[in-house]
């Protein structure tokens, strides 16, 4: 069977730092796959390699059998790879609606010429895609903030807008880097349900980095565990968590080690929320 994604012997070095060492794993088409591991284990680095932000020092990446190792980041969206970021990366001064519309960039054909004329198909196309965006807005319950400037939203809402933007490019493979970090219980519950829907209803293959073990156990089909840039386990969630290496690596001492204060997302200040 052809894999949606195959990571083959990927190593990544930053000067003397080995962020990844010969990491290999494969994600099946339609799977909900989680990457876990302590902070600094290399989880974000692997997602950056898949989305094209980092180029592996060694090794290869295959997407539906196609070698994408050296592909430019902006050439990956049209192939159907979308992602969200661990530290929010919205277009701060744009409205929620426009943020999500940017996600449809590669699906739109109007250009600076037809766009400036708002004619020759540009208008019709914009309105068609606006309809698609409204469906995503409805799905993620963002109706009340669609006209708000993204930078003024609460942390939890911004995370959701990022998900909406990634969904808008209609990915076949969606990469979610800590989609629930910094959320309260209720927000996490909503987010977990959205992710399951992405996978089951929208048919997207999901690769998720998440620290909340409860969620990972609940919703993932399979899990890979990284530690110090190496893969230490892979398999279904229950087996992986029972693995002695994994226990030693980071489940050992306390239950909540998974939330490292250093990696806590920066919450917007109260002033920022009110502004």
């Amino acid at each position: 069977m052809e894999h949606a994604l195959e990571v083959r012997n990927v190593s990544l070095r930053f000067g003397g730092v080995r962020a990844l060492s010969e990491v290999s794993f494969a994600v099946n088409d339609g799977e909900l796959f989680s990457i876990i591991g302590p902070n600094g284990a290399g989880k974000t680095s692997i997602v950056n390699c898949i989305s094209g932000r980092y180029r592996p020092t060694e090794g290869q990446l295959f997407y539906h059998g196609r070698d994408i190792t050296a592909l430019k980041p902006n050439a990956r969206a049209p192939l159907g790879i979308g992602r969200t970021f661990q530290n929010l990366a919205l277009f701060h001064h744009m409205s929620v609606l426009d943020n999500i519309m940017v996600g449809r960039h590669h699906l739109l054909k109007n250009n600076f010429f037809t766009g400036a004329l708002y004619w020759l198909g540009a208008r019709r196309e914009e309105l068609e895609h606006r309809r698609k965006v409204e469906e995503i807005i409805d799905f993620l319950d963002l109706q009340s903030v669609r006209k708000a400037t993204a930078g003024t939203l609460s942390y939890g809402l911004r995370k959701r807008v990022e998900l909406a933007r990634a969904m808008a490019l209609e990915p076949k493979l969606i990469l979610l880097d800590e989609p629930m970090a910094g959320m309260n219980f209720e927000e996490k519950e909503d987010m977990a349900r959205y992710i399951v829907d992405l996978n089951e209803e929208f048919g997207m293959t999901v690769v998720m980095i998440e620290h909340d073990m409860g969620v990972v156990m609940d919703i993932s089909n399979r899990v890979v565990v990284l530690d110090f840039g190496r893969k230490i386990a892979e398999g279904d969630p229950a087996t992986v968590l029972a693995d002695p290496h994994v226990k030693r690596a980071y489940l050992g001492e306390e239950d909540e080690v998974l939330v490292d204060p250093d990696d806590a997302p920066d919450h917007p200040s109260v002033a920022e929320r009110v502004a």
Partner: peptide
């Protein structure tokens, strides 16, 4: 929109295919 996206956050603009 692509121009403004490049201004606001060029890394995620690139991920959106820009």
């Amino acid at each position: 929109r692509a121009l403004v996206a490049v201004r606001d956050h060029y890394l995620s603009a690139e991920i959106m295919g820009i």
